[in-house]
Amino acid sequence: MYSSWRKTLVCVAMIAFAAAEGCSSKTNSSTGSHSGGAGAAAAGDSVIKIDGSSTVFPVTEAVAEEFQAATKIHVTVGIAGTGGGFKKFCRGETDVSNASRPILAEEIALAKENGVEYVELPICFDALTVAVNPQATWVDSITVEELKKIWEPGAQGKITKWNQIRPEWPDQPFVLFGAGSDSGTFDYFTEAVCGKAKASRGDFTASEDDNVLVQGIEGNKYALGYLPFAYYEPNKAKLKALAVDWEKDKIGATLPSAEAIIGGKYNPLSRPLFIYVSKKSAARPEVKQFIEFYLKNVTELATEVKYVPLPPAAYTAISERFAKMKTGSGFGGVPEVGLAVEDILKREPK
């Protein structure tokens, strides 16, 4: 009995020792990190820190993976969301920020306050797909005006049946699926369709997890919903995408496809995704190298993770923008929809 107690005592002593170790390092760190700035990583400053949108994450993850394999330089990527990412970025805590929308006015102000200058780089496209159940044989295309009629806040409780949108559609209530209100997808869809970000009816099944939307639409003949193009592609057999007709661009109903998106024909539901690079970080050779690597390989890697790359000419212009360190945003803090790549690039960052 005695020996077993001795064993446990040794264990306790070891824990205590480890605790003391922990405490001593705690004091080290609180003194050490004040000099090294917030969150200096173990490997020193050579780690490239990226955070932001979970929509952009798969692309940046793919680039980071290849970059690290090629150069052995460490890269970390988080998913704090576009807003959360900008909060860190504008405080100067991260080197690169993933964003599914342009930087907003208050974020620009925060960056200015902390002396953070940045270069805005569009890197690929994301498109929202309006999808229905494959059994919904009555519908192949829908206009933005009709989408607005379904989704605008005033439609809640009033517009509930398919034939209220078009008389020839069935006299059946539709079941709506859409993005959760914290996601960039929700912001973009409502902005593009209803004219105002976050203006949406509330009586639909909302989920932050797009796979839930796929299952929902798949399981109901009278379902209608919207989800990112990257989620539609692998689920083509389960969902039917609708061609979207935007009255303003007079192109006619267009189905979502890589070609249509690149060609600027799938508007207003395609949107550019961005990365923002801090000017101060870009002065570090490894960050510069990472961004150059990013722009060089994003076409191939974005396609691989089911996103739509920009046309090749656009990347030349974007690389030039980075090389010349043109800081600022081309959007002036106000989000816009339905812009073609050329329009985005034509805008001088301010």
């Binding site: 173990a42 994450f57 993976e65 890269v75 970390t76 990527v77 860190k88």
Partner: peptide, 15 residues
């Protein structure tokens, strides 16, 4: 941990 900024992609181990 997400709140304090734990990461999602990290392809190296602590020293």
């Amino acid at each position: 941990l997400i709140t304090i900024g734990a990461l999602t992609f990290i392809a190296f181990l602590p020293t």
